[in-house]
Amino acid sequence: MTAPRLPRRALLALGAGAVVAPAVGRAQTASAVSAPFEVRPLWPGAAPGGEAVTVQEQVVLRNPNGDPNDTAFVHVRDPWIMLRRPAQPNGAAILMIPGGGYQRVAVSKAGGPIDARLAEMGYTVFIMDYRLPGDGWAAGPAVALQDAQRAIRIVRSRVAELGFDPSRVAVAGFSAGGHVAGLLATRFAQDAYAPVDAIDRLSARPDFAGLMFPVVTLTQPYAHGPSARALVGSDPTEAARDAWSIERHVPADMPPTFIAAAADDRVVPVENSLMLWQALRAQNRPGELHVFEQGGHGLAQTDASGAPAWMGLFDAFLKRDRSPRS
């Protein structure tokens, strides 16, 4: 079946906050949408470390006059994880982490064309919302990592129920969500929060990582400004920049990593992707880098079917035989 052509707006929906939305003060509150998918909270009670948090969560329209399902979550207090089941499962699961420049999370409980296409390809798709570092959480810059670790453990807790392979659980992050996914792929051995239930005994290591037009480095001159300010402030030390730069902390057991970006990205410089690729090479870790000549932030290049060009490449990467050669 030929997939519908995805509009550029749909591709940018997963991108950085500098592109995707008007200021919150000008945004309209989004109307309620009927979610056709299963949505569950990430945490069994209140999210950890919220004693000093006073902000009120909002759901806003990314375009005041646009699609009522084209939403962003601001000042997230109750993060969630959503499941889209494939009609014909291929045995693998993907945890999607959308972007938003660490200012908001560009996601909809009505789903979107990216997760729809991945499910059509057979993937059991989970989409997560996550908390933001500027809202007063005790974990500070690590708050989104807490949610990502909890989310992938929830994915793993549903292996028997949903029937996917526990060794084929990938994370796919977009823009600032790529930074969250990068944290998950590099810091899975560091528990970002104290266990709250039996789910937290499961591994937080993704089997594969896909980073699309990702925020990677907080070092100058290639840092994405809004993400860097949200994570380490407006006048950070070099040590703080280094601490939250993904390419500086690639472990010897980092999962196989797929990276895709456009050379003409004016929001997150493509050097972010190049720096991570070089770090993977330095650690002799398996990885694949695709730099498209055009596509901008959102990587709007499409294939003959109208699907994002990176998607078929990522699918092939996830399915590659990596068994030892005799």
Rank of each mutant, 00 (worst) to 15 (best):
P7R: 13
R9G: 07
A23Y: 02
V24F: 05
G25W: 00
Q28T: 14
A30V: 00
R40C: 10
A46M: 06
A47W: 15
G49N: 09
R62N: 08
N65E: 08
D67V: 07
P68L: 12
R77A: 01
I81F: 06
P89R: 13
G91H: 06
G91C: 15
I94P: 05
Q103K: 07
S108R: 11
P113N: 14
R117D: 10
A119H: 04
T124M: 02
D129G: 10
P133A: 12
P133Y: 00
G134Q: 03
W137H: 09
A138S: 13
A148T: 15
Q149H: 04
I152N: 09
S157Q: 02
D165T: 06
A170T: 00
V171L: 06
F174P: 04
G178W: 12
G178S: 06
A181Q: 07
G182C: 05
L184V: 05
T186Y: 03
R187A: 10
F188M: 10
F188P: 04
Q190H: 15
D191G: 00
P195L: 05
R205T: 11
R205I: 07
G210T: 04
F213M: 13
P214V: 02
V215D: 02
H224E: 14
P226K: 02
A230V: 11
S234Q: 11
P236T: 10
A243H: 03
A252W: 04
A260W: 05
A261R: 10
D265T: 04
V268P: 09
Q278C: 04
A279Y: 00
A279K: 09
L280I: 03
A282H: 13
E293R: 02
T302G: 05
A304N: 05
S305H: 08
A307Y: 11
W310L: 11
M311K: 11
G312M: 10
F314V: 15
R322L: 14
R322S: 01
S323D: 03
P324M: 07
P324G: 12
S326N: 09
